[in-house]
Every structure is written in C-alpha cells, then in structure tokens.
C-alpha cells in the first residue's frame, strides 16, 4: 500500500518520475534553517525525492512551492532551477520570524484495488496489459487517468458500466526557516490533509531535549497515525536509524533526537470512503526538521 501510494503520488505530482519508480521520500532541505542578523537575508534550498537522505536523487519540480511568511501571508511565488537530480531555489527573508516553505499536491485518479498478493495480469511478452496507452493501465479501462478535480476526472472516464476505484490524493512537503525570534503565524494549520502542529518550535530542536508534535487530519487530531523520522546522512552509516512512532489519542508524538542534523518526517495515511464517487482518500506528509547540537 505504501509503495503504491508513493509511486502514484510522485507520478501524479512530479511528472518526472515514472510509474516504474520505487518509493522515494520527498523533501525540501533548508541550507540555512536558522538565520541571525537584523537585515533581510537570502536562504537556499534543495528539493528532491530520494531514499538516501538528504542526497538528491529524483528532481522534484518547484511548481506550487510557496513561502508562508512570518505574518501568515503567502509569499511571492518561489522561483528556482530544476537540475537533473534536484531542484534548487533561494528566497529572501525580508521579515524577521519563522517561514514555512511548502508544496502541496492534490489530485484525483483512477486505480483499481488489487487483492493482496495478486499479480498484475500480463499480456504476451510479459508486459502488463495496456501499459503505455493513455487511460489504459494494467488493470483495465480508466486505470491511471488523473485530473486536478473530481469533475474533470469524471468527465474523462469511459462510460463502460464498470466500477472505477477513484482515489483522492493530497500530499504536503514542507520545511521551516527562522530569522531572529521564532514566530508561530506561519505554522497555523490550513485544516486540509495531514498537517503537523509543531508544539515544540522548529527553531527549538536540540539534541537531549525531547520535542512534541501534533498531527492533524483535515484539522482534527489524528490518533494512532504512523509517523517515521529518519536522520540525514543515511549514506554514511550502516543503520538507517528510522524511528517509527504512533500518535497518541490527541494526535501527538514525543520525539528524542539521537543526533543533530536534518531529519525527514514522513506520514502516510489512507481513509476508505463508503459513500460518494471517491473510494478512498490518500494523504502524505513530509517535513524536514533541523536539530541542533547542545
């Protein structure tokens, strides 16, 4: 399930990653997460999708990247450059306080639920049937179609009388940068999809000091949600050191930091719906947090 979701989301939102890709974690790495100085300052970011944190692998487009300013307003569109294996952008911190840089991706697609363990039907030559033809995924008519809105998707669907499994996907990739005194306005949730409320401020993450985060699903505390945190530098050690946590009844987790550095927070969830045209909601959340040494 996890793999399917990630692949779909990536394919849907990035366009650059094919359906054959394996699951990859998505991230925005701030190169200057904490900034001092009383004048405006430029900060830079790497944006990529990779399993080796934080080494760029698959280029992630910058489409839809926004800066939420310390006063809560949305900053001007973030412009940058998409390279072969990452995108880069810079942003001038004109206001003092905490900024959130985020990219949300939303879409509707047709997927067919595959019974667990079942293999894809193969045509002669071993290639999945219908592969490569628009609207003809390996699972039959309509499979693989996608659109930004449900209406647009429904308008495209072939009227063949067969049930379609429609998935609504909503994912968010974000990170935080603070110049001077930390502020909270940019951290306010939008109550859409999975969001993290950093009860411990992102500028206050230090080794030896546990941090608390609350997760919301569409604005409500998300209990029993699986949250993974992995410290960067996975290429240079043998243990991945991923912490797999579950949110409590209030949607909260308490995190201990085994080392300083950037961490990727990853959350995925699926909610099956019994009514309406959409059969399931798939949510993704990725955040880069930077932990400082004592």
């Amino acid at each position: 399930m996890k793999k399917t979701f990630l692949v779909s989301t990536l394919a849907l939102t990035m366009g650059l990653v094919t359906m054959q890709a394996q699951a990859h974690s998505r991230w925005i790495l701030p190169l200057q997460p904490i900034v001092s100085g009383h004048e405006s300052e430029w900060v830079s970011f790497d944006v990529s999708a990779s399993n080796t944190l934080f080494q760029a692998d698959k280029p992630a487009r910058l489409d839809g990247m926004v800066a939420v300013m310390p006063d809560g307003s949305q900053g001007v569109a973030v412009e940058g450059y998409t390279d072969k294996r990452r995108s880069v952008f810079s942003y001038e911190l004109t206001q003092p306080g905490t900024y959130k840089f985020e990219q949300t991706n939303e879409g509707y697609m047709v997927m067919r639920e595959r019974p667990q363990g079942a293999e894809q039907p193969k045509a002669e030559g071993g290639k999945p049937q219908g592969e490569g033809k628009p609207g003809m995924g390996p699972q039959g008519p309509g499979r693989g179609m996608r659109a930004d809105t449900l209406e647009a998707l429904l308008a495209q669907l072939p009227d063949d009388g067969k049930a379609k499994h429609i998935v609504h996907s909503l994912s968010r990739v974000e990170t935080f940068v603070t110049r001077g005194k930390p502020t909270d306005a940019a951290l306010k949730p939008t109550n859409k999809g999975i969001e993290m409320v950093p009860l411990t401020h992102p500028a206050d993450l230090f080794t030896g000091e546990p941090a608390t985060f609350q997760f919301l699903l569409n604005g409500k505390p998300a209990a029993d949600l699986a949250v993974e945190l992995t410290p960067g530098g996975t290429a240079y050690r043998n243990e991945r050191l991923t912490q797999s946590l579950k949110t409590d009844g209030e949607g909260k987790i308490k995190v201990e930091w085994p080392m300083a550095g950037p961490y990727l927070v990853e959350v995925e969830d699926e909610v099956k719906l019994s009514e309406g045209k959409v059969n399931s909601e798939r949510y993704g959340y990725f955040a880069t947090l930077v932990v400082q040494p004592q």
Partner: peptide, 19 residues
C-alpha cells in the same frame, strides 16, 4: 557584519540573542 554569524553561538542565540 549584520550579526550574521551570531546564530553559531547556538545556545546563546536561542536563549538570548534572537530576542
């Protein structure tokens, strides 16, 4: 130097400097 590197005194920056 615009206090640009004061953040490197990371504990002092966090407890005092940034305020």
């Amino acid at each position: 130097k615009k206090d640009k590197w004061l953040k490197d005194l990371s504990q002092w920056w966090r407890r005092v400097g940034r305020d």
